[in-house]
């Protein structure tokens, strides 16, 4: 077991070292690259902690999407003439606040670890009740059955983020993306082989998600990766206005949730009580599509997308 602790210590050291460099570095671009690596190490930590659901989401979002988002935003800033200023405010408060908040987190953590575990804790309850839901993956069970309302509200947050981004979007400037050169045949080869594969993995994660790690969030994140790939290579181009299909896809997840969740009321069942496994699949599919479209639009910083015509 000592080898396991050694791995833990190395991962922890990498996390602390990387975050220190990200925060105190002096070149913004380099620090963004380090932040991407930070996401990779976090994903490794999830794998090590035995949470493959989180590792999947982090691999797609933390390591891939967030980094790509930041790099693209940075690109726009540089294009707009922003300087890569290493600007740093001198503050007498900063160091004490950092040290104290870190210490506070540690104290709370140790206090929480000291609390004796009661048998009726939420996690064990979930595992006890899980067989009754027809699902095999406890995380999916929590997301859709036990805490469905939270997940629905999460979809609302995603929608609000997109609407907010649309609101601050410049009028006549559907994000000018700088596309990757396509004169190299390798990029086309990459697209033709990788994008079907991402679709396949997304569907696999969605279907497998009821019983093994995976689910709507992970599948949506993978699909977003595919969308971002298509936007980056110019296969999908930012459009000025959102089409009807786009709008429908954006609200699909929330709509499915509301209809099925509130529809339970009409049949005299508790709100958000799902009528069966088919409802889980329906909601998950809708959520996956909504997440993927919303995130891809957030990435492209546009109201819609249209396929390039050649």
């Amino acid at each position: 077991m000592s080898v396991g602790v050694l791995v833990d210590v190395m991962l922890a050291l990498a996390l602390v070292g990387l975050s220190l460099r990200v925060v105190t570095g002096r070149a913004l671009f380099r620090d963004m690259v380090l932040f991407i690596l930070f996401g990779l190490v976090i994903s490794l930590s999830w794998s090590r902690l035995g949470a493959p659901d989180l590792a999947l989401a982090e691999a797609a979002i933390g390591a891939g999407l967030t980094g790509a988002l930041m790099l693209m935003a940075y690109r726009r800033l540089v294009e707009g003439g922003a300087e890569d200023s290493p600007g740093r405010r001198r503050s007498f408060l900063a160091l004490p606040v950092g040290v104290l908040s870190g210490a506070l987190v540690a104290v709370i953590g140790f206090a929480a670890l000291g609390v004796e575990r009661v048998p009726g804790a939420a996690g064990t309850l979930v595992l006890e009740e899980l067989p009754g839901t027809g699902l095999g993956n406890a995380v999916t069970g929590v997301l859709l059955v036990f805490r469905g309302l939270d997940t629905m509200l999460e979809m609302t947050v995603l929608l609000v983020a997109l609407l907010g981004a649309w609101a601050v979007l410049g009028e006549a400037r559907p994000g000018r993306l700088h596309q990757v050169d396509r004169d190299t045949p390798l990029v086309a080869a990459l697209l033709t082989s990788v994008s079907p594969l991402t679709l396949l993995i997304a569907v696999h994660l969605l279907l497998a998600g009821t019983d093994s790690p995976g689910g709507a969030f992970q599948a949506g994140a993978v699909l977003t990766g595919c969308g971002v790939l298509l936007v980056l290579t110019g296969t999908l181009r930012p459009a000025v206005a959102a089409g009807l299909v786009t709008k429908l896809l954006v609200i699909a997840g929330l709509t499915a949730f509301v209809l099925i969740g509130a529809g339970a009321l009409a049949f005299g069942r508790p709100t958000m009580a799902l009528p069966g496994t088919w409802a889980v699949y329906l909601i998950e599919t809708a959520m996956m599509l909504s997440i993927a479209v919303t995130m891809t639009l957030l990435f492209a910083r546009s109201r819609g997308l249209y396929p390039e015509r050649r």
Binding site: F29, I36, S43, S47, R48, G50, P52, A55, L56, A59, A60, A63, G64, L65, G67, A68, L71, M72, Y74, R75, L177, H178, Q179, V180, D181, V187, L190, V194, L197, T198, I201, H204, L205, S212, P213, G214, V222, G225, V228, L229, L232, T233
Partner: peptide, 29 residues
């Protein structure tokens, strides 16, 4: 660790590895 689902994580990593590279090539001209 005897956790086969981690292989899916690895697959995801290799599939999406190009996203960051493409973003980089598109970012730093």
């Amino acid at each position: 660790l005897g956790d086969g689902s981690l292989r899916t994580v690895a697959l995801l990593f290799v599939v999406l590895a190009t996203v960051v590279t493409l973003a980089f090539v598109g970012t730093v001209r």
